[in-house]
């Protein structure tokens, strides 16, 4: 799909183009929102708000080819605003190094499994894991975004990784038993 052309049409208020823009990007954006927000309705609300903001703010987008990254950042911000309204409590859980037997990196991890795994994490761990491990923010940036200390961000990430590692290991073990 030629996004720059589609975006130009959307800028001129072409309803057909706007609908097409939504159809192409909404599933990926809802995927981003679901990673942050376990509640399906909240995730969909955040996605709708993101799409609305994107469609009304297309004039600020300089390069149409970067639209997917741009709208993804809008969605992440929208999810963080939703989480901020919940007044989440991020606790510092200690910074001990985690040494857990890691599952093989070659193991296939399906997109749907990502959500299943993240859904098991507490909201704080989940947010910081998403921001750090998936989006690529630094601990300092996360601290600034969420208004928490560097150590709190680090400790939450460590706990998230610890839980995820153990769940992935369990899943791997159970699936290998099933095959046997």
């Amino acid at each position: 799909m030629d996004f720059p052309v589609l975006i130009e049409k959307c800028r001129h208020g072409d309803h057909q183009a706007q609908s097409e823009f939504y159809r192409l990007l909404a599933p990926a954006i809802l995927g981003v929102c679901r990673r942050y927000l376990p509640d399906e309705h909240e995730a969909e609300d955040a996605m709708i708000q993101s799409m609305y903001k994107a469609l009304t703010g297309l004039d600020t987008l300089r390069d149409g080819r970067t639209v997917q990254g741009w709208i993804r950042r809008i969605a992440v911000n929208e999810c963080l605003m939703t989480l901020r309204r919940k007044k989440m409590d991020y606790r510092e859980d200690g910074l001990e190094h985690v040494t857990t037997d890691e599952p093989d990196a070659q193991d296939k991890l399906q997109a749907e499994e990502v959500l299943a795994l993240l859904d098991q994490l507490p909201l704080g761990y989940r947010t910081i894991f998403n921001l750090y491990a998936i989006e690529g923010y630094t601990h300092k940036e996360i601290g600034d975004i969420l208004g928490i200390s560097l150590n709190t961000s680090k400790s939450q990430l460590i706990q998230a990784r610890k839980k995820l590692t153990s769940w992935i290991t369990e899943t791997k073990l159970s699936s290998s038993h099933d095959h046997a």
Partner: peptide, 27 residues
Amino acid sequence: PSWEPRMRSASDQLRVQPRPDSWDRVR
């Protein structure tokens, strides 16, 4: 952890189909 890059690429592939009336809300 070694599984994290795999999780990252799986996340990029994640697509969740919105409800049919969601476009009406945006419109």
